[in-house]
Amino acid sequence: MIAFIVRRLLLLFPVLLIVGVIVFTLVHLTPGDPASVMLGRDATTEQKDALREQLGLDEPFHVQFVQWFGDALRLDFGDSLFIGKPVTEALLERVQPTGLLTLYSLTLSILIAIPAGVIAAVRANSLPDRLLMVVSIGGAAIPSFFFGILLILLFAVVLGWLPSGGYADIGDDPVQHLRYMLLPTIALGFSAAGLLARLVRSTMLDVFNEDYVRTAYAKGLLRRRVVLGHALRNAMIPVLTVIGISLAGMLGGAVVIETVFNIPGMGRLLVQSVTRRDFPVVQGAVMTVAAIQVLVMLLVDVLYVYVDPRVRYGGD
């Protein structure tokens, strides 16, 4: 087990390296050079050359990359061209809204998807099952930003129950915080819930055909015990992977949702940095999110062993 985790952690490095190469190459390919951006239009060629040398931009590509990647591994992404702070500091300031939004949305989607999927599977082809199908197909077609706008229209504009956007720190005012986060959470969590519920349904239906489910019924267990104790536990294995994948999707979705609801998170920062061409921040934010996603997938692999005792990763 330990050996497995260690091996997976070592495998993490090449993936992060490739991710790093992609991010670095992208920014390197960008037309316009950082020295001119930082110094403005009036700078002389000598000034630009001096700054370029100072920033190490006159070095060959691979030297620059090694330098940058080494720093990035130590979570140092350089300084923002615009905010005048280290990128890491700027990202850390923005991490709370994004982290909480993702967490709430994931919780919401699991809380909806598992009961809905189980009910749909137990009563396959019933009205609730068909309803789930329609809602999840529809949910997959609605982009989160438009769903968010519709929520704002209903709950903020027409009913006036909730604010249409903004953010309150959870430490300052928890109630206000939840009022601000409710609509973004629904916007982000709902479409993931549809996909997840369909998966729970189909794996549950597969599991219902297994021998151990028949055995459980045969020994006289209640239906509830069989469904929740035997079937659901086994159906969770593929579901766990998809929860990991949807968490990654939510990190991406948060970028869009933060813009819709004007939440000062990492995603909002990233979008703003793209428009003002603040490349160190773009690099840092994209790199961070990709690293989080890779770590989440690793966590999912490890959790597998706990959910499914049959899985023993080789070597031990």
Binding site: V15, V19, T30, G252, G253, V274, V282, V286, Q293
Partner: peptide, 15 residues
Amino acid sequence: EAFPSILLAIAIMAT
């Protein structure tokens, strides 16, 4: 694929 797809798209568009 390690990037959430919209994020990769944003990064490429930034370039």
